Structure formats: C-alpha cells, structure tokens
Amino acid sequence: MSIALRHSDVAVGEYSLHVVEAGDPRGRPYLFLHGWPQSWRAWKAVMAVAAPHARALAVDLPGVGESTGPATGGSKHRLAAIVHDLISALDLDDLTLVGHDAGGMIAYACLRRYADIARVVIMNTVIPGVAPWAEVLRNPYIWHFGLHAIPDLPETLVRDRQAEYFDYFYSALSVDPAKITPEARATYVGAYGTDSALTAGFDFYRAFAEDAQDNAASSGVPVDTPVLYLRGEGEGGDLAAYASGFRDAGVKDLTTALIPGVGHFAQEESPTAVWRLISDFSRR
C-alpha cells in the first residue's frame, strides 16, 4: 500500500528528533514509538492503514536513525521526558501514544509521569519492575537481556554484523519472518549503523535496573489514563499475568487483547489487525 509520508526534524531541547507523519494533519493524533532493533520504519504499514482516518506520526528514538542528541543512557523516564517534550512541541491534543517493545516501556513511563496523554497502548513487552518482570528475567530464552546490558561487549560483537544479528531476532520472534521485508531490514541496519546508535539501542537494556526502580516508586499508585495492552498470540506469555501486573501497579482502566497469528513484531506481521485494535480502543 502506497502512502504519502512527511518527514521533519523537530528540535526538542538538545535533541533533533526525526518525525515521520501520514494522514490528515487535523485528524486525531497517534504517536508511535519503536523498539529494538527497529526505527520509525516499523510503523510504516500501520501508518498506511491509519492515514485515511487519523494523523499518524512515528519518531526515531534519540540516538537511533536520524534522531540526534546527547546520550540518554537508556533511562525510560529520561526518554519519556523527551517524548513528552515532542508531544508538546507538536501540540498533540487527545493523543493516543503507542509503544512497542522498548517503546512500550517508554510509553509506560509517560503514563506514570504525564496526565495530559489521553490514552496509552503498550505492545509486546514487559515493563521493568511490573509483574511478570521477575519471571521474564528468569526465562533462559531471554538471554539477550543480559548480553545487551554488558558495557561495550555487544557493540564489539555486533559492529559490522548488524544484518546477521538482527535477522536472528526477526526469525526467532516472528510467526512469519518474511513480513519484515528486505527493505525494512536494510533500514534497521542503517538506523543502527554507527557506534553511537548501537550504544543507544543497547542502552535500552542497560537501563533496566534503573527503570525497575523508577517504576517501583509509583507501583500501586492509581492511574486513570486508559491503557490497552497488546501481545502477539505467537509470542507466548500469559496475558492474564501481564494484566494482573498492570492492575496491581495501579492501572485502573485496562484493556487487553491477543493479536492472532503473529509474534513479537506484530505491527509488521499484521498491521491491519493492529490498527483495528488501536483504533477501536481510542474511539470507545
């Protein structure tokens, strides 16, 4: 599906954030945050489906792709502050903030810190410090959490081998890896093509202990913002355990759903189904 995309670089404090937009500039806004090892490009197919009905925006997170600025250390609260400044700079009212993977962790930090975001969607991730976080950390199949947290080593191992390394995760975590196209894969390699971008990506993992402490500080404090939690059916994990964790942490208005026939990279594996769930949630 062809889509008219508008690219811009938005100054936010010390950062220049690369923002890609589609749809009606006067429409209801949806801001999409990517995870690792991806960039804004992960949302292109969803934006194509959304564009006739909404204002769809996606951003390269700081240090990744075409977004530049000082290193953040991967702290989700620090990244949430930058995202919130972007929301203010773009004057995004009645916003649905959507985060996948590490972007979902950032969306959760925004949920906790800023009451002016109308609704939040969190996809295919576990939140540091929020159940079932401890169970996920014990899972031997999540070995990369530990590797990526080691200073310098993953950069040394992955430098100049981004394509091969990233391809492993697309194959291991997708129901249909072919849905992550060669063009998309090449874009992601480019987005993490520099040493600083590799570090920005691995810093998402290095900050997990800090993130867990930050999230624990607000655990149990009620939050009224509506939240939709989505998980790919093929990714595994007990959806009820994630729902219980969010509710115990204080999320009062929670909706959950499994996305059928997809794995971790749901927005590329089944963009129409993902958009339908997000759109229905935002319009209820």
Rank of each mutant, 00 (worst) to 15 (best):
M1L: 08
M1Y: 03
S2D: 12
S8H: 13
V10I: 15
E21M: 07
D24Q: 11
G27N: 11
Y30E: 06
Y30T: 04
L33V: 01
H34S: 06
R41V: 09
K44P: 00
A45F: 05
V49M: 12
V49A: 14
A50K: 11
A51Q: 08
L57N: 03
D60S: 10
L61H: 12
L61E: 12
G69R: 03
S75T: 12
A81R: 15
A81H: 15
V83F: 03
S88W: 01
D91C: 07
H100R: 07
M105A: 14
I106A: 05
I106T: 15
R112W: 02
R113W: 01
D116K: 01
D116H: 03
V120I: 01
T125G: 03
I127G: 05
P128S: 11
P128E: 11
P128A: 12
V130H: 05
P132Y: 13
E135C: 00
R138P: 00
N139Y: 06
W143V: 12
H144P: 10
G146Q: 07
H148N: 13
H148T: 00
P151E: 12
P154H: 11
T156I: 14
R159S: 11
A163E: 13
A163G: 08
Y168E: 12
S171Q: 13
P177V: 12
T181G: 02
G190Y: 03
G190C: 05
T199F: 00
F208R: 11
D214P: 00
N215K: 00
G220Q: 06
P222Q: 10
P222H: 09
V223P: 00
D224P: 06
P226N: 10
G237D: 06
L239V: 03
A241K: 11
G245E: 07
V251H: 04
P260W: 10
V262M: 10
P271M: 14
V274R: 04
S279H: 15
D280L: 06
